[in-house]
Design a protein around this nucleic acid. Sequence first.
DNA 1: TTAATTTGTTAGTCATAGCTAACTTTTTTA
DNA 2: TAAAAAAGTTAGCTATGACTAACAAATTAA
Lengths: 227, 227
Amino acid sequence: MTNKLNLNNLTKSEEDYLKALFQLLIEGGSAKVGNNQLADYLKVSPASTNNMIKKLKAKEYVVSEKYGKLELTEEGKSIAVRLIRKHRLWETFLCNYLNFGWDEVHDVAEQLEHIKSQKLINELDRFMDFPTKDPHGEVIPNAAGEYFILPKTTLSSLEEGAICQLISVNDASVTFLKYVSEIGLALSSEIKVLEVREFDGSIKIQFNNTEETVTRKFGDNVFVKVI
Amino acid sequence: MTNKLNLNNLTKSEEDYLKALFQLLIEGGSAKVGNNQLADYLKVSPASTNNMIKKLKAKEYVVSEKYGKLELTEEGKSIAVRLIRKHRLWETFLCNYLNFGWDEVHDVAEQLEHIKSQKLINELDRFMDFPTKDPHGEVIPNAAGEYFILPKTTLSSLEEGAICQLISVNDASVTFLKYVSEIGLALSSEIKVLEVREFDGSIKIQFNNTEETVTRKFGDNVFVKVI
DNA sequence: TTAATTTGTTAGTCATAGCTAACTTTTTTA
DNA sequence: TAAAAAAGTTAGCTATGACTAACAAATTAA
Ligand SMILES: [Mn+2]
Ligand SMILES: [Mn+2]
Ligand SMILES: [Mn+2]
Ligand SMILES: [Mn+2]
């Protein structure tokens, strides 16, 4: 009896907690993630996360000591990656085949990612001819759960004069995504940082012969590759 | 404040109960449906249905008197039809685009029908160019919730000598559907009833130059049009 | 028309997954 | 290093939606 990854015995909530932990720890690159941070991220109370973490520890998806930081086991990570794969494949399907805008897909994908059917997701992948990026520029794990997690450099972390390319955007805020589209930014856009204002962290950027001033918060949600 | 059909405030369970009631009362054509019959159909205890019916009555989707039979309000029906539309559109998508067999789609559609997004289902409909029948021959309600509910004539109700065409099949049993395919029956197949054996209700039928003997139970799950 | 059977209801229990309020431990700051 | 703040935990509550066991009403059979 080896490694029986019981993908089908997890509740929606359990899946969501594992995904959140993965996104904080691995995709987000946080060295340590605590109970309250997770609660914040999931917009639930610390008591709720504490409770769920107990369950996930009992099921051996999470490891932590009392009052200590949270870690995912390999099985915990594996479940999270499969969920992320489903989420991103669905987002891609909605955008590329069902006329959804990139600002409209996340909430629906949050529901669709919990549909339990291995065949469904692998056939959807095949149907779209195995896409590698979702509408927000994020890498889609393959059927084996493998994918390259690129370290996230935010636009707001760059110095004046830096030139970069837009790689991906945070997909969770509808208003942010609409705003990005509105000013004419898109994946692959080349951006030059003209000015970083110390006073409020706002950034003046140039792209497509346009100049825009954006806030630090905006820049925190735009991920780039320096060129 | 008119007719506010709060489609999004229903739980998965509430939706399932309304759909079950609709399928018994309207699609199934039962004159009266009671609490225990509903419990049977949904494979839950009578106490559970009793409890849920109370909630649905409070929300005005169901009407019934104490110890009386169950009825759906117009709003209750409307919700059920929308659910049936979603179910059948998803089944169609799985069969026609994702290489699912007709015996594999029902369980997945049971999950997908609860995804809440008006746009998703209407775009899926458009993407498939507005199909009118699902893989089991059942009529798909349109975006306005309109569809023709054809009265179900079972193969087992026919007399010896009758000739009919296969219109639809019960989609809930995987083994039944596999069996139908295996013997070579399909939607639109022309079937002649050669013999009805009184002893056990078994039926000898002829189709595609083949003869087969099937049970009454089999015939109960095959719906036909006499020609 | 009484008795048996079926049908429907109620009470009380359980699991999941949220919450608040109170508390403890750890970390930070003064 | 002691006090304050932050982080984590626990207890106890709520809602949903299952369940069983016990009971009441309605229907059917004798
Ligand atoms: Mn998303
Ligand atoms: Mn995305
Ligand atoms: Mn079905
Ligand atoms: Mn069907």
